[in-house]
Nucleic acid binder design. Sequence first.
DNA 1: GTTCTATCTGAACGTTTGTTCAGATACGAT
DNA 2: ATCGTATCTGAACAAACGTTCAGATAGAAC
Lengths: 195, 195
Amino acid sequence: MARTQGSHSDITGPRIREAALGLFARHGYAAVSMRQIAKEVGVQAGALYNYTPDKQSLLFRLMRDHMQDLLAAYKALEDGGDPQDTLRRFVGFHIRFHLQRPDEVFIAYMELRNLTPDNFAEIEDLRRAYENSLEGILNNGQKVGLFSISDTKIATLAVIAMLNGVMTWYRAGGRLSLDEVEQIYWDMVRRAVTA
Amino acid sequence: MARTQGSHSDITGPRIREAALGLFARHGYAAVSMRQIAKEVGVQAGALYNYTPDKQSLLFRLMRDHMQDLLAAYKALEDGGDPQDTLRRFVGFHIRFHLQRPDEVFIAYMELRNLTPDNFAEIEDLRRAYENSLEGILNNGQKVGLFSISDTKIATLAVIAMLNGVMTWYRAGGRLSLDEVEQIYWDMVRRAVTA
DNA sequence: GTTCTATCTGAACGTTTGTTCAGATACGAT
DNA sequence: ATCGTATCTGAACAAACGTTCAGATAGAAC
């Protein structure tokens, strides 16, 4: 046997990405074999290598694409007027964007240590760029006296850590609507930083 | 060759635990082999099985002991008087306890999915017990009108998530002292929940 | 000094790992 | 209908995996 009926790179390529995404998120990069990914796609392991040079690249591209999507989506947001409004938009954006991509978020956070040093550095740059946009908001608010923050660098990390906590418990269709979740977290963030 | 000079279970046992702890934290459970652990201890892989029935138990015991230590240490704290003071104590305790055990914390958080279902359930029970103690504090403060929290369950998770963020960036000897870190986080937590 | 046992080695086991590749077939263009 | 190429199979590779165990040596007890 060889090429199979209906086979096409436009179909197989994305399916490999999706299979790897789900399996990496559920079981972890190191615990997932190329044969498991292939099986989920319905293909032999060797076929994967038409789409990725190796397993590491499969992971790296998932993470890089996710971080680039995140940055692009955030840049597409128009600024609110004052820092308080901009921060509110950031909170809403962060929660909603991440809740739509639970697998990508999980991988981007958990699998950093499985990246080669070069790949790790590239992902870290993207992450820092995103964090810097929040830190900029906090700095602006601090400058005009709206916020009262003893250390904006730490406050940046604290806010992101708090917001990322949503991912560990929120489930669509649960007790709270997305709007309610956003409101609750915005209340806490606002109070934590407001003068 | 066989038994080696100076070999003793009181020495080898802890060294295996420490080696596993460090390697699991750095590279992840699935990515670490029994032979790597043995090499760090200076022993052959087979010798590990005098100390653990299998690799899974090695991970599980690290996590269970850590969670039990956490609960025991927290219970040893005497209550503050009012909820606000109790919450302040909790924040300080949480930050200091976890910063002293970065490897254990990392593993307890990252390797949950590598536990067998039975082991997972046991660890989750311990984690929930700890979270419940914080939720109790928030509930008390809410009842007496000191706190203003729309959802104590979510606030509990949000506070813990925020505090856990410290572990990702704090380094001893860095820009901020432990006291300063504790003060900064306490400020944010207090403002996030206070009426 | 002898005996008993705790401790470790070194080899072996069957599986699984990531990756390569020659060959085979289906698709797309002509 | 024919041809070129995109796509996949199936087998193979060496290496690494978790685990077991018979045999050997060191330490402890007497």
